[in-house]
Write a protein that binds this DNA or RNA. Structure first.
Lengths: 212, 212
DNA sequence: GTTAGCATGTAAGGAGTTACATGATTTT
DNA sequence: AAAATCATGTAACTCCTTACATGCTAAC
C-alpha cells in the first residue's frame, strides 16, 4: 500500500512522452508541471531517473554531438522505452481516488492531452466532489469555532475557504468545457470560460524583462 | 542548518498559548491552522508533543476529573511552561525569510494576534515580495514555453498564475489594513476589504447540516 | 453487542530536501 | 580572470505518513 503515490515518476514519464530530454532540462519543465512552481532538487531528480531506468521504463543515451546553443558535457538524454510507454498509458488511464488528491491532481491534469476523455471527466468530477466535501467539513468546524477565533485566524480561514470555492468554480468551468457545453456563463464571475481559448488579460506574459 | 523549519512545533506552541489542551483536541485545532486543511496524523503529533516536553517548553498534566461531555480516559492536558512562553515569543518575533515561505506563512499568520505590529508588517511585505518574484520568473518561463504547450498545460499554468495574483491582492488588502488605511478600494474586485470585519456572503457558514 | 468516536501512543518507511562534490561552457 | 549557467550526481537527513496497537465511553 503505497503511501504517497510518488508524483515525480508520472511527471517525468509524461514529459518524456512528449519529447526526449536530459535531466537538467527536465527539471525546468517539471517545475512548471508539478504545481505551485516549487523548485525540484537534483537530489530528487537524478535518483528518480536512475530508478526509472532500472525498471526499464526509460533509457538514457549519451548525446555528444548535439550542440544546440550552449554547453556540451555528457548530457544524458532520456527517452521512454516500449514498456515505459505502456506503463505510462496504464497510469494515465487510472482514475482512482488517488488521482484527484491534492498532490496528484496537478500532474494528472497536466497530461490530460494524453488522457482519454472519460478518464479526464472522472478525475475532474472526483476532484470536484473531494473539494466540496472539504468545504462541508470545513464550514462545520468553522461554524463551531468562529466565536473563539481572533480576527487573523478568522481571516485565514475565510481566505482558505474562498480559495477552495474558487477552485470548485474553476472545475465547474472545465467540466462544462469537457462536456462540449461551450456556453459562457452569463451571470457571475469575470471570465467567460476557464479553458484555454485565450490567456491574455490575466497573465500578461508579454513583457520580456530579460533580467537574471 | 534546519531544512524545513518544522511547522508543527510553532503551531502547537501557539495554540497552547491560547489555552491548554490535550492532544486529540489539539489535532483538530491544528488542522484548521496548518493551512489547506490537511489532516495531521497522530503519528506526527504525539512524538512532537513528547519532544516539546523533553525540551521543557510544555508540560503534560493528567486531567482525571474533567468530564465535560464525552469520554474520560487519561487525557493528558498540555500547557506551556515559562521557558515555552519565552521561546514562543522569540519565534513569533522573528521575521527572517523563513517566515514568509509557503510552509510557514500560514502558521505565522494564524498567530498574528500574538505578534507585534512591526513583525506582522515585515512578514506580510516579505511574503508579498516573495510572491511577486515568483510571478516574475513564472511569467518568463511561461512566455518562453507557451508555444510548445497543449491547452491543458496552458490552462494549468494560467490558473496557477491567477491564484498567485489573487494572493498578492489579498496581501495588499491586509497590508492596507495593517497601515490603518481602512479605505475600501473603490474599483476592481467584489469585496471591499480582506481583513475580518465581516465574513458573511462568501462563506455562508450558517447552514448546519449535521451529517456525518 | 457492536459500531462509532474519543484518546494515546510506537515502528517502519517514503518522498523529497539540503549540502556537498565535480566539471564544462558561456558571458561579463 | 571571474562569475554565471549548464550539467550530473551522492550522502545524510527531516518531516511527516501509514499501519499497527491499545483501551475507554457513548450510541444504536
Amino acid at each position: 500500500m503505497r503511501g504517497r503515490t510518488d508524483v515525480l515518476e508520472p511527471a517525468i514519464l509524461g514529459l518524456l512522452a512528449e519529447s526526449p530530454m536530459h535531466g537538467y532540462e527536465l527539471r525546468k519543465r517539471l517545475n512548471l508541471v508539478l504545481g505551485s512552481f516549487r523548485a525540484l532538487s537534483y537530489g530528487s531528480l537524478y535518483p528518480c531517473l536512475k530508478g526509472l531506468a532500472d525498471r526499464g521504463w526509460i533509457v538514457g543515451v549519451d548525446a555528444p554531438g548535439d550542440r544546440t546553443v550552449a554547453s556540451k558535457r555528457a548530457r544524458i538524454v532520456y527517452q521512454l522505452t516500449a514498456e515505459g510507454k505502456e506503463h505510462l498509458q496504464q497510469v494515465l488511464s487510472s482514475s482512482g481516488p488517488a488521482a484527484w488528491e491534492d498532490e496528484n491532481f496537478d500532474v494528472r491534469f497536466a497530461f490530460f492531452a494524453q488522457t482519454d476523455a472519460e478518464t479526464r471527466m472522472r478525475i475532474l468530477e472526483g476532484r470536484r466532489i473531494r473539494l466540496t466535501e472539504r468545504l462541508e467539513t470545513f464550514r462545520q468546524s468553522f461554524a463551531r469555532t468562529r466565536e473563539r477565533m481572533d480576527e487573523y485566524t478568522l481571516e485565514l480561514q475565510r481566505h482558505g475557504l474562498e480559495q477552495v470555492e474558487r477552485e470548485v468554480r474553476w472545475l465547474d468551468d472545465l467540466i462544462d468545457n469537457e462536456r462540449g457545453t461551450r456556453r459562457a456563463r452569463p451571470e457571475g464571475g469575470g471570465r467567460p470560460a476557464a479553458a484555454a481559448d485565450d490567456a491574455e488579460g490575466t497573465t500578461e506574459a508579454r513583457n520580456e524583462k530579460e533580467r537574471g
